[in-house]
Design a protein around this nucleic acid. Structure first.
Lengths: 230, 230
DNA sequence: ACCTGTGTTACGCGG
DNA sequence: CCGCGTAGCACAGGT
């Protein structure tokens, strides 16, 4: 990749339109044609464009400033360099097996739940993951040991109002087209207050589980409607 | 900021836990203590941590490798440098008035609609922005010139199925607690096919507007239910 | 190519 | 300070 330190302006047109007035910034141009314009603040670049299927062309404008244009089907970004302080090329080849190992993801929580469902829902058996509800796949499907009623389980790391909407979408559709006796529950490491309110208001049970990838796990807090029939 | 080109490992603990095996990468350390680890692919860093209220300490580990640790209340990230190829300091001071100008946002579309509602809905008067429906604030509230029926207007840049859900939530609650004669419409620069289907299926009118911040604007495409009574 | 869902989402705004 | 909703979200995976 190339790292350019320059006083530059930037113009972007595509999903929105943005313009950056002249200023000193860092421009990072990657091997895959991605470009990032950074200043000293925060994780996100001031301006950027994905390299997917984009081409790079370098020109000089009427003022003699060097311009780099990144162009794809639907987007274009131009960096106008009023003054270049430095430019270096550095190699950071993409990793194959040296990639990122990740822990504590929703994916892993799902796996753990599917294998240890009795820890948190002792009256249910795990049936299947990514079960199709008709309105998209729900994370886990379980079934009551006694009544044999299905239970849709939506898993989140952090559950917000949006997660409750998701559960309700799944449950509505499932009850309509598959089984009117279906129930649903929201399981998360963290259920936000607004999500709790909303879920309780709509009679969706929720359950906060204290889980870490290689340690103890337990129910932290939970809520079930009065008429909750397993 | 400092740009370090090094063969390094990275460990992060906080919202999740991640680990990067030794590899050549670019490390960007900003003035606000944010850190980003990049390879040659994509916009997002492989690993990163926000600089907000974090401290930086440099140490040597038992192998004599230089380590930089970023520590905050709830997160910590350590970069272990097995070999440093280069390190440069570059200045990219934060901008005050030279910041990012943004155009074509939902916010601006809302403003334009509130001031030019008659362009797209000639039979309605604009009443207020961010009107509380009981299920959250709807972007715009308008009223029929003739029948005085209220109209909830949800504005999006890109409208997906989720936007239709949102409109229906607002309308249901609004009709229940405020005014049973309320109507609702979805207005967007782009209404996705799946959103059109779903909206039409649920009798929610939608309207695609061809708008740009400082040019002409017009209705591009729209759909209203048969029983649409203004 | 579009749709769906996740993310260490990041970030700004309001309470 | 925390919670909440937005984003030019980015990105992966499926259809």
């Amino acid at each position: 990749m190339k790292i350019i330190h320059a006083n530059c302006s930037v113009e972007y047109q595509g999903r929105g339109n943005t313009k950056l007035a002249p200023h000193d910034r860092i421009i990072m141009v990657k091997e895959d044609n991605s470009v990032l314009i950074h200043n000293e603040k925060g994780i996100k670049p001031l301006n950027y464009m994905t390299g997917v299927k984009s081409t790079i062309t370098e020109t000089d404008n009427e003022s003699g400033d060097k311009c780099i244009t990144f162009d794809s089907n639907k987007e274009s970004l131009t960096v106008i360099m009023h003054r270049v302080y430095s430019e270096v090329a550095l190699a950071a080849p993409n990793e194959e097996d040296a990639g990122l190992e990740r822990d504590g993801t929703e994916e892993q929580l799902q796996t753990w739940l599917s294998e240890n469902l009795s820890n948190i829902l002792p009256c249910h058996d795990f049936i299947e993951r990514e079960h199709e509800t008709g309105a998209g796949p729900v994370d886990l499907l379980a079934m009551s040991k006694d009544t044999k009623k299905p239970l849709l389980i939506e898993v989140k790391r952090v559950a917000t109002r949006a997660a409750v909407h998701q559960v309700r979408r799944y449950l509505n559709e499932y009850q309509e087209v598959k089984n009117p006796h279906g129930n649903a529950i929201l399981v998360a490491l963290n259920v936000r207050p607004s999500a709790r309110d909303f879920a309780e208001n709509k009679n969706i049970p929720w359950l906060e589980v204290d889980w870490n990838p290689n340690g103890e796990s337990a129910i932290k807090e939970s809520w079930f409607p009065d008429n909750w029939n397993i």
